[in-house]
Design a binder for these strands. Sequence first.
DNA 1: ATGGTTGCTTAGCAA
Length: 257
Amino acid sequence: MKIATWNVNSLRSREERLCNWLVQHTPDVLCLQELKATEDQLPLDRLASLGYRAVVNGQKTYNGVAILSRAQPVEVRVGLDDGVDDPQARLVSAQVAGVTVVCVYVPNGQAPGTDKWAYKLAWLQRLLDWLDRHHRPDQPLVLCGDLNVAPFDIDMARPAEWRGTAMHTPELTAWFQALHAWGLHDVVRQLRPEVGLYSWWDYRMLGFQKNNGLRIDHLLATAPLAQLARAALLDRDERRGDKPSDHVPVMVEFDWT
DNA sequence: ATGGTTGCTTAGCAA
């Protein structure tokens, strides 16, 4: 079973790249973030023709997440479902082929000290609460998406430049470690311990040309699945060519049928 | 400190 995640930065502007990637890499599940669209704006018929069903938590202009899957998704959940008045579409989950897949788009946070930063930190805690409320670490579960967190120095090409930004602070590292304490294993890092693995490069300041990358897109798995993780891909090639997303797909193959 | 680029929407916001 191949599970992938990709922040496409507008699905409509990435339709060709998305379809090409699905055909080339044939994931069983693909979690998408930053759709920047409502469900009715998405090319669901074309995705169906490629063999993919979709569960969508869409939003006009901003945010928006979806799970594409070859198998029928069941037990669908939309949003954090905690009573907070929050219009931002940042979570969708479903069970696919016996695996619970949680697709999230964590708030960017702009900069520490801002209102958006406070929203990010609150959202991270709300996600931990959501996990506690709905799931257990002994279930086969994958949490993946754009976490907007580069947890450790190895996840940043230029750590000194990013330390103290909204992508890397002590509280964000502590949150990532809290996910691990809950039972979510960073299977990508387990499989790929080398330096130089990044999933995002800023469009600005020649971020990609200078390889000023961060690993902020993650795929975490509970123990029953983590022990079955066999290979991980961060598809850097997807950042090349015309009109790439600023993020690239991250995919993990599990020995799970 | 500021700027740089992209997408949505159409001047400004978000990333």
